Simulated assay, not measured.
Amino acid sequence: MALNSELKRVSEHMLALGLGALAHANWHANYMSIENSKWPELSVLQAAHAAEILIKARIAEEHPLLIFEQLPRSKVTDNFLEMKHLFESARTIQYSELPERLWATTGMKLENLEKYKSFGRLRNSIQHFAPPPEIDFSGETINFIFEVIDPFINTCWSLYAIDYNEDIDRHIYLIEGLVERGIKFLISPNCVKQLKHVDFDWPKNNREYEQEMKKRLALMGFIEQNSRHS
């Protein structure tokens, strides 16, 4: 099936959109708003949406039509298949089916698949029913971002989830929060540049986490001078 030039740019568009959604999810999950109490729940929706778009972006790199489960029939046009035909009658792969399509088209297996599935169920419960009680939505989002999205975008495009955040002082406050929670994350070169004078307050009683993150920092050329719990 022939494609026009607009369809050939689908993967680039989806990658940019997915990273934008990731930045929004990081912002809403790691910060608070006085005006809007729904930031934690919104972070779940945004992170799930980001993962969905980013996985589709990788699949679309193989061929843009692979992200669809239903395509227009040839009778809709005598020439090239155009974007408008997809808008009118095509249907994309659903969230729950994306890991299998990713594997079938690229050979990649999504890390922490059970986390991906459970987070999708959480997103659905928030979006279509009511937020489950006694759940730390921000915490669930942060875990999902750095256990599922972070390794995925790093493998696919050498990108780092820590670099996508709407806070103007991106890394410092975000990383302080992640360290406080004991969240393991991939260290980006840009991140190291902004952390030259940061004195990490490593969580107490979690030596394994501290050692692992220090190893990751060291591998990226970061030398910690004055750790408060070294």
Rank of each mutant, 00 (worst) to 15 (best):
M1W: 12
L3P: 06
S5Y: 10
K8C: 12
K8L: 15
R9H: 11
E12A: 11
M14S: 00
A16H: 10
L22W: 01
A23F: 03
E35R: 14
W39L: 11
P40D: 08
A48N: 02
H49Q: 09
A50I: 08
A50K: 10
A51E: 04
E52V: 02
I53A: 00
I59S: 01
A60R: 01
P64V: 07
L65C: 02
F68T: 05
P72S: 11
S74M: 12
K75D: 13
V76A: 00
D78M: 05
N79Q: 14
L81Q: 06
E88R: 11
A90E: 05
I93Q: 08
Q94K: 13
Y95A: 09
P99T: 02
P99A: 08
A104Y: 07
M108S: 06
L110T: 07
L113A: 03
E114F: 00
E114C: 05
L122T: 00
S125N: 12
P131C: 03
P133F: 06
I135W: 04
I142L: 08
N143I: 00
F144S: 07
I145H: 03
E147S: 10
E147I: 04
D150W: 09
D150A: 00
F152W: 01
N154D: 09
T155L: 14
A161E: 06
I162H: 04
I162M: 10
D167M: 06
I168V: 15
D169T: 14
R170W: 01
L174A: 09
I175S: 04
E176L: 10
E176G: 14
L178E: 10
I183M: 11
C191K: 02
C191G: 02
C191A: 14
V192R: 05
F200N: 05
F200G: 01
W202N: 03
K204I: 11
N205D: 15
E210F: 04
Q211G: 01
I223G: 05
I223F: 09
E224A: 13
S227C: 12
